[in-house]
Design a protein around this nucleic acid. Structure first.
Lengths: 111, 111
DNA sequence: CCATGATATATAGTCGCACCACATATGGCC
DNA sequence: GGCCATATGTGGTGCGACTATATATCATGG
């Protein structure tokens, strides 16, 4: 409806960390997963993705390694570090707290 | 716990619109309300407040008027415009959509 | 076999939100 | 008289997400 598909600050980060929680994935696959799982509500622009992956790697939350396979171009697979796991848990808590606060302050129905 | 008390993008906006939904309020009072209602989870810095009020007024979502009373310094009371009401409703929907999506994509328990 | 589209990674530049630091001013309290 | 809470305001910074653009490979079809 509203053509306002801005991501809120940090939400993309949380999603990326979450989708590589169980298994390593490469960039393009991460973006596709988010698109799929969100049902198109959240458009995650690829152009934002790679700078973010580098950022997360620079912080030590994820690590990437190049995988070359015959029949396809090189891909970089990212996985969570232990620190990344901690941050994922923390960010989930943070978002919960935000949601709770918004429910109280702004009358967001908690359905 | 975590020293990460960053507000997510647009959350402050939603809160401001919501707290003046029923009655006009002046800036300082708005900030205090948010602090109170959120139980201190969300620290809304006054320095962010006034620029935001001007922004919302420039967009035509709120209007302010000066009120001078004996025994206290001048205050500017803001109230929602009809457009502001529309935007408030829309932003609530947006945040709902975001949380629903985060629940699906990032495994945020919908408690 | 060449064109097109999906896959895959990457960089440059811009915009807007929230931050911190600082500034100014008045009323109430001890 | 000094301090704190109240109340509004400005300047600069940091950073996340955006648009636009670039490069390259693989699969498909005409």
């Amino acid at each position: 409806m509203a053509p306002k598909d801005d991501l809120k600050k940090g939400s993309a980060e949380l999603m990326v960390l979450a989708v590589i929680e169980d298994a390593p994935r490469h960039g393009y696959d991460i973006a596709r997963s988010i698109d799929d799982r969100s049902g198109g509500v959240l458009r995650f622009h690829v152009a934002s993705l790679y700078p973010m992956l580098y950022r997360l790697e620079r912080r030590g939350w994820i690590t990437g390694r190049w995988v070359e396979k015959a029949g396809q171009r090189r891909r970089r697979y990212y996985r969570l570090t232990p620190e990344g796991r901690r941050m994922l848990r923390q960010q989930r808590n943070e978002w919960h707290a935000l949601f709770d606060a918004l429910t109280r302050v702004a009358g967001l129905e908690p359905r």
